[in-house]
Design a protein around this nucleic acid. Sequence first.
DNA 1: TTAATATAAATCGCATGCGATTTAATCGTG
DNA 2: CACGATTAAATCGCATGCGATTTATATTAA
Lengths: 144, 144
Amino acid sequence: MDDFLTLKNQLCFAIYETSSEFTKLYTNVLHPFGLTYPQYLVLLALWEKDGLKVKELGETLNLGTGTLTPMISRMEANGWVRKERSKVDERKVYIHLQAKAKEEKKAITQKISEELLTCKIELEEYEQLLKQLNQLQRKLRERK
Amino acid sequence: MDDFLTLKNQLCFAIYETSSEFTKLYTNVLHPFGLTYPQYLVLLALWEKDGLKVKELGETLNLGTGTLTPMISRMEANGWVRKERSKVDERKVYIHLQAKAKEEKKAITQKISEELLTCKIELEEYEQLLKQLNQLQRKLRERK
DNA sequence: TTAATATAAATCGCATGCGATTTAATCGTG
DNA sequence: CACGATTAAATCGCATGCGATTTATATTAA
């Protein structure tokens, strides 16, 4: 059972697949709200701390401007966020939640947790995975 | 510590991030070979069983033809695989490895495992994560 | 003070990933 | 046989994701 070339024994593939499954689950819930999964992650970040700069949002989500700038534009067009270029330093752009994003927060997170409940994930399982994944991430980043 | 709305406490985000880190690591290694990470997954599947149909490859990798068809075309253009439409049933298309994919197998997998070694992931950690992720995947799929 | 650097965001090109539709071929049932 | 249903792949449109470059602004050092 030490066949490390088998697809089903690849940790990278297990994570790739699980990530894809999560995306599908979240997409199911978010689609009626007119949100994508990455856009929901942006909202999660802003619900936690509104008015982040594009750069900070990028650091929080591990995304570059090549991904964020167009995504934020779409979210602005859909009324979720608002961009505001700093008067003091015009290189900086702050992203603020719009009223819609604050109003819908409860409904969105409610639907998400309902859907997650149907998966019957044990708290212990959840926390252990979270811990192990963070440890793995650290190792992936800190190599070299 | 029961703040389930915090980005860093989201299992979905931990998986999303870890998947992205893995992709970066693999991309580092694969880029010199002219391969992307999803293309490498296709090779992994075909090294295990050559001559899969597009449909079977899709089932193996959880990908639809909207993703696979253009990707396979690129891999064909780059000399990794070959498409062969079945004579018996012209709806079916078999994907075969080309010589290059067989010849480079050892070099590619060698480089990948070297890179993974630098992460110092314990065997126990690896196997436990694999098991837990498979269990989680089952739960995500089997809800409803 | 200004010229070189550095920083922040935007832009560009390319490769996924996916839902939905289309096209082509085969199957199944009357 | 024949025609509607099914199946397999291709195609389409849209939204990421990312490396690389460009643009605009601010900082710094001579």
